[in-house]
Design a protein around this nucleic acid. Structure first.
Lengths: 219, 219, 219, 219
DNA sequence: TCGTAAACGAGACGGTACGTCGCGTCTTTAT
DNA sequence: ATAAAGACGCGACGTACCGTCTCGTTTACGA
């Protein structure tokens, strides 16, 4: 094969050689980033701080990431992957699909309640908010955030809704993605904007309202 | 009629005397802040920059606000108040209530479409996102943001929904606030998280889904 | 005498009316200035600090003095005057002239030793150094410092030397002022520049060397 | 020959690594400091100004010096060293010793006159006074000032006096250091405190008085 | 198996902005 | 009418991080 066969486009600034990347440093940086965000809040985390905590040169961070938001996002994704791997073997199905008991309302309520619990867990709350906030303001990061962290979860709802459509529990002519948003968006808004209390009761109410509609059934 | 008439408790750090405050500086700071955000984006705005543009000492900003987010929030509120005042006399009704033609669906769609247009207007988009993002991460500011900028608008929807409940177009047993969220939150989420396109068509769909429910009418 | 007969040249900026000056404020400012210098050192004293401690508006200071050095200088002069006044009646002679026992060497050594003791007294050392330092760099203040605080003391030496000249103990053809400097300047230098230890022994040595000359008597 | 060969004790605040210090910046800072003092006077020189003129970050100054006085002192010392180096080869003797023609009085007068000329040269006057003043009030700096800038010059006088003692022109039992001070201190005082005119004539007079004593020779 | 080029830790550097302090001026308030 | 109180525009302070740039020092590859 031709020498210097770089599949990558000629990067502007001598792209680093990923093969030589230090796995040790990468892990240390993720851990440092996550722990610092938990301790001090995203705004007070600095790249210098991450480097110091990780025992790593600043350049090693700048070499592989372009901003602290990127670092944290990847750290978070990595965290998810590790959790998934741990859950892995025996309970692989847990993350693969929502339960399908035949009762859409119950199934969705169950999972949404779980999501609400997670959002309220201080361990996730702070760094998750930080990323969400950054994503609001930084389109590129926002899209990665949605694609990598949000979308996989949302797709499970979409799949469950499609299943319900096939079962005749949800109208077949509806766009399942938009249907999903009717369930999920109200929770997201209350969480993001603290515009109201976020509880299991609220979750159930939203699901009921969305399923049965706001208008009276009889005309 | 006991009101909050209280000489406020001794503030922590020698609160400045509001009576001596320079109105001229206050206005200049608002204008500088808004124009800088439009020009450069929130992240690149600095307090030093605002002070320079406003022809004001930095201390004059720090004396009255605690962060650039606060400055911008108040600048925004002030902007709204001025706009309201200008609209004032003749068209006072415009901001006072949603139209009530007797057709809830149409009325709500109309106003939501208008809101969507505003959110997509680059003039509002950037600074509004900036405040929303800051509010996600800074509880105190978030609450002010919601209370001062969001809530007034949302209350109009709530009022319209209550009117529709009286007219029998929306079920009387529903919580109008939660009902409102079914309309509004999906738009908010798409806007904040760029999780999908935001359009008039989408708006209409959301309203229809919410009103008539996701489940089939006949069982 | 004619009213409003201002002997002072028409000051540039509406000279304040000295007759209306608040004696109470003047005293409070002197006391505040001196106590602050003792506590924190000259460099850390600020006009705002003096005003606050004295319970006086800043403008009251700026109206009558042009710098903190001026304030301190006058405060010091005032201190001296008060001390002199206190010593006043009974021991008036103490400050009025050096002792004249007929033995110049002994008389001068006695007083110089006393001066050395004072210079080494921490109570005087700090503010005195501060003024001296400021005077080194600020000609106008330096001249006031010398004229008001140094010169009176130095004149006593000059007078004693002249008396000694009349008594034939010091050569009559010498300039008594320069003679005085031979005694005083070495002490001043050691004090100001910490260029060597300042002691009674040193004092005596300097006086002896100056009186009898460095060159051998016999040629 | 045990010398101070010691890995210095752990400095208080992570001492910077002198091996990596930028020589380029150091020189630029010295030049900027000296030129600014000449142009504007010591009091108006700021660290910010030095940094800007030198094209250097402020931190680079704070990293290596603790105050503008320190910067200026080192700049001055460096200036001296460079001058010495330049004079170096051919005229090395100029700074190495006072002339020794066999006539102490003449030799000392000659050099003192030269010193007086320098002190009155506006090029040296301002920055030198500034350092002297700072040294009066700041013991640590004062000691460096004396040790690095004053002492080397004074030692030359001491050496010349010792030579005169060996030649029988100055009494052998005198402390040569104190003898030196009798010549030098009066000039220093007049210069520092503007307590009288500083001239060649005055210089000569002081030397004569000191050499032959104030008291009459015959008793 | 050994050189060598890279990634690495460390951290100095030129910068920008921070939030604070004090300046000297000007205005308002309360006798 | 006179001060105290203190807000103001301004400029400098000393600090924190930014992102870039050397420095030696590992480290892992390919010759």
């Amino acid at each position: 094969m031709a020498t210097k066969t770089s599949a990558e486009p000629p990067a502007s600034k001598a792209a680093p050689d990923a093969k030589r990347r230090s796995e040790r440093s990468r892990r240390a940086i993720y851990e440092a980033a996550l722990s610092l965000v938990s301790e001090a809040g995203y705004a007070k985390v600095t790249i210098e701080g991450i480097a110091a905590r990780a025992g790593v040169g600043k350049q090693t961070i700048y070499r592989w990431w372009s901003s602290k938001a990127e670092v944290l996002l990847e750290a978070f994704i990595d965290l998810g992957e590790q959790a998934a791997e741990a859950a892995g073997a025996e309970a692989g199905a847990a993350y693969a699909a929502l339960p399908d008991t035949g009762d859409v309302a119950a199934d969705i309520k169950l999972v949404l309640r779980h999501t609400v619990d997670e959002l309220l867990d201080p361990k996730y709350d702070a760094p998750y908010r930080a990323l969400a906030a950054e994503g609001v303001v930084n389109r590129e990061l926002g899209e990665k955030f949605v694609a990598k962290l949000l979308e996989p979860g949302l797709q499970l709802y979409v799949a469950r809704i499609e299943s319900a459509q096939r079962a005749g529990q949800i109208r077949a002519d509806l766009d399942p993605r938009i249907a999903m948003e009717l369930f999920v968006a109200p929770l997201a808004q209350r969480w993001l904007q603290s515009s109201g209390p976020l509880s299991h009761a609220y979750t159930d109410t939203v699901v009921d309202y969305a399923l049965h509609g706001l208008a009276p059934r009889q005309v």
